[in-house]
């Protein structure tokens, strides 16, 4: 998918510029992009380092464990098919908590562990189970309260208040997650 998208962007862009006589602009843009990549990567790197550091403190202090135990109670309602006290609850909870604080890299390993443990409950090994789909819907809807990359990019562009988008972002992501979960329930019922 991403492969096709990349081919499409570059080929159609260069071809269109060729026919509209815009080649000069494209030529300059390729060099200018490299500068953009450099500033973006260095800036994001530093902000990530800060957050990963803070989150490691939270993890070592047992804060993530505490929050995920609390969350497990809610998860029992969202994932009715997982047996009580199954280990996948703690992986799912840790994944959601890490995403919540904008720690994509910390969330992914938990998410992969959650998938592996959901697979042990799965009857048909090549087909997605209902719990897996519910779990991924929560992930694709991007439930978060600290969108770290966006904030760091806004800092890079010298926003007067880089975090003033937080509340609308949280509201929008909550709407997306709830809508995703409702759709998941409807489709699960229909496909039974």
């Amino acid at each position: 998918m991403i492969n096709k998208l990349w081919i499409f962007f570059l080929l159609s862009g260069i071809l269109y510029a060729f026919f509209t006589g815009n080649m000069e602009v494209i030529n300059k843009e390729i060099t200018a992009s490299l500068n953009t990549v450099f500033t973006m990567c260095t800036q994001i790197f530093v902000v990530m380092a800060l957050w990963l550091g803070i989150m490691r403190i939270a993890k070592d202090a047992g804060l993530l464990d505490m929050l995920s135990r609390k969350l497990s109670k809610v998860l029992k309602v969202i994932f009715p098919e997982i047996p009580e006290n199954h280990e996948s609850f703690s992986f799912i909870a840790s994944n959601i908590i890490a995403n919540f604080f904008g720690l994509g890299s910390a969330a992914t390993p938990f998410g992969l562990k959650a998938m592996k443990s959901l697979q042990t409950l799965n009857q048909k090994k090549d087909t997605a189970s209902r719990s897996m789909i519910t779990f991924l819907v929560i992930n694709t809807s991007g439930l978060t309260i600290v969108p770290t990359t966006v904030i760091s990019l806004r800092m890079l562009h010298k926003s007067a208040n880089p975090t003033d988008i937080l509340i609308p972002t949280i509201l929008a992501t909550v709407c997306a997650t709830i809508a995703g979960l409702i759709m998941d329930r409807i489709l699960a019922r229909r496909s039974r």
Binding site: N139, T140, G142, P147, T149, V150, P168, T169, T173
Partner: peptide, 8 residues
């Protein structure tokens, strides 16, 4: 910014 932050 909100669009980028609110979904994955």
């Amino acid at each position: 910014s909100v669009m980028q932050g609110s979904t994955d």
